Amino acid sequence: MASSPTSPTEAVDFAHSGRRAFAVETRGLEAVAARIDGAFSSACALILAGTGRVVCTGMGKSGHVARKIAATLASTGTPAFYMHPGEAGHGDLGMVTDADIVLAISYSGESDEILTLLPALKRQGNQLLAMTGRPGSTLAAAADVHLDVSVPEEACPLHLAPTASTTATMAMGDALAVALLEARGFTADDFARSHPAGALGRRLLLHIGDVMHTGEEVPRVSGDASLGDALLEMSRKRLGVTAVVDDDGVLLGLYTDGDLRRTLGDRSVDVHATPIADVMTRNPVTIDSDALAVEAARLMETRKINALLVLDAGRRVVGALNVHDLLRARVV
């Protein structure tokens, strides 16, 4: 009886293919890293001295890499955007000002769509930074600064699909962005300002004052109030706490849901007759309104508490927040 033919997938060692791709791309990265030299420094100096933006352009896979490099530059302190070279020849070139630096990416250095733009860019006075895999190409020769991103081979066994070459080019773009970031003294706060909707932006930009309850929303009772008065205030404001303050709004103490459970464990306590001053927590954990919201989250976690009072410099109660407020703000 004839045996059934082996299926195509049974003849392939997928893990071996994957490891080979990584090995080839690693060698490509090492080759390009070894060429980080004076040309790379010149490219950084060119961008740092520029007064405009970095306009990244490329066709096909190089275009995808150019988009990523533009995004990375823009988020790390170097204004940049991507321009499709095909659309540029039909009007989008108007987005480029004479102060902009053009970063053109073409592994062959002979992409027609990019070469077509060179005369117009030169007439306008734009400086040209090129990344190619062929230092003798037309694009490399036309560039003010050329970065050689050639790799020994592609990971594609057919040596057709851009693989190691696009990885190396993207790494070169990352290297530029990092070098420029360090040269500019770019900080985590700067990064957060360009990422306000992200988790890092919320953690570094959102302050207590942005999420706390204020005014009539803040639960508070006077120092001569009863425990019953405090419980009614806690029920009305629904933050699980109430501040106890003097006539000037200065904090005297704090009463929480946890305090209530402990108080009710003492059967001799009369809710209506017991002064809140007798059962409140004196010198509770508090926070300043100028502190970051993430500090409140860290404080709550460390001290095992669910709410905080916010004080001004005179220890007057100006706000309150609990863990649910931080969850709504997506700080935790």
Rank of each mutant, 00 (worst) to 15 (best):
V218H: 01
R220S: 02
R220G: 00
V221H: 03
S222D: 14
S222Y: 13
G223V: 12
G223D: 13
G223Q: 08
A225P: 05
A225Q: 11
S226T: 15
L227V: 04
G228P: 12
E233T: 08
R236P: 10
R236N: 10
R238K: 15
G240S: 08
V241N: 05
V241D: 04
V241E: 11
T242D: 03
A243H: 00
A243F: 03
D246P: 00
D246K: 07
D247P: 00
D248Y: 05
V250I: 15
L252Y: 01
Y255F: 15
T256K: 03
T256M: 02
D257T: 11
D257R: 00
G258W: 10
G258T: 09
D259I: 03
L260D: 10
R261F: 14
T263F: 03
D266L: 15
S268A: 11
V269A: 12
V269D: 12
V269G: 06
D270Q: 12
V271D: 09
V271W: 13
V271P: 12
H272S: 12
A273N: 13
I276E: 07
A277G: 08
V279K: 04
M280G: 07
R282I: 11
N283T: 14
N283W: 06
V285E: 07
T286F: 00
S289A: 15
S289I: 07
D290L: 14
D290G: 12
A291E: 09
A291H: 10
A291M: 05
L292Q: 09
A293C: 14
A293M: 09
A293P: 07
A293L: 05
V294P: 00
A297S: 13
L299E: 14
E301K: 14
E301I: 08
T302E: 11
R303G: 00
R303Q: 03
R303H: 07
L308V: 02
D312A: 02
D312R: 01
G314L: 08
G314M: 13
R316Q: 05
G319D: 02
G319M: 02
L321G: 00
L321S: 00
V323F: 04
L327N: 14
A329N: 05
R330W: 08
R330Y: 08
